[in-house]
Amino acid sequence: MSMLNSDNLTFEYIRRDEEGNVESITKALDGVSLEIKKGDFVAILGHNGSGKSTFAKHINAILMPTEGTLYVDGMDTREEEHLWDIRQRAGMVFQNPDNQIIATVVEEDVGFGPENLGVPTEEIWKRVEESLKAVGMYEYRTHSPNKLSGGQKQRVAIAGIMAMKPQCIVLDEPTAMLDPNGRREVIRTVRELNRREKVTVLLITHYMEEVIHADKVIVMDDGKIVMQGTPREIFSQVEKLKSYRMDVPQVTELSYELKRAGMPLPDGILSVEEFVEACGRLRQSGGFGE
């Protein structure tokens, strides 16, 4: 079953002068065709201005395609009668936690979404409790959000989305403003939601180490999909990634550099554990005995 299905999705920003004549057209998305299955964890990489966020904004119909079609759970985002269903099914989490929190108490903030969906009160409280437990913020339910750390605020924002029982969460650089601890908290939470609650996750990020656990990585450049595959397939292509202004995790780069210097290491090493294992094997294999 596909959660998202985009067919030749194209979006143009049209700039007009004061008389309303077209001054310039920028293709922010250019023929993006892509399928994301239910339950997948997909990461999107791409430099600033590559079209990632424009794509994300199509998923809950904040933007409509200029050409092509995007189906969210089988619904065409251009058909207005599906608008509320689509927004309930695909929730978005943005970069700045302070822009997403509106209530003065954590549990009220989380309840805001389902309340607006017309969920009965008792059910709202049940959902609030479940979502806060799912992101590990239940003990903060009566706290004021502005006393929380950035990572905690983002988890509250994610709980607010979870309370709407979406099938898909789109996170647009959710960790860009957080410190290393906050980043780890948020990514761990998102991975758990994906694994335990089977929520489809679309994670947009500039941090390479956050995508190594994804099922699939998509690289965008100039409004197009230029690379897609498993993290290992993507991170095996160090030079190509760099040409798209991307990077690889430090240990991947280290392995790549060592290989270029003559050490027979495998391609696409993604973690410290894999690196140590590969070095250990190398040492044990013949020719390098002490």
Partner: peptide, 20 residues
């Protein structure tokens, strides 16, 4: 205290712990 070292620092310590 909520911080970390660069990933390569960890990689070197991990090698050391594995007897390399």
């Amino acid at each position: 205290i909520g911080l970390a070292a660069p990933q390569v620092t960890y990689a070197m310590h991990a090698l050391q712990e594995h007897g390399i």
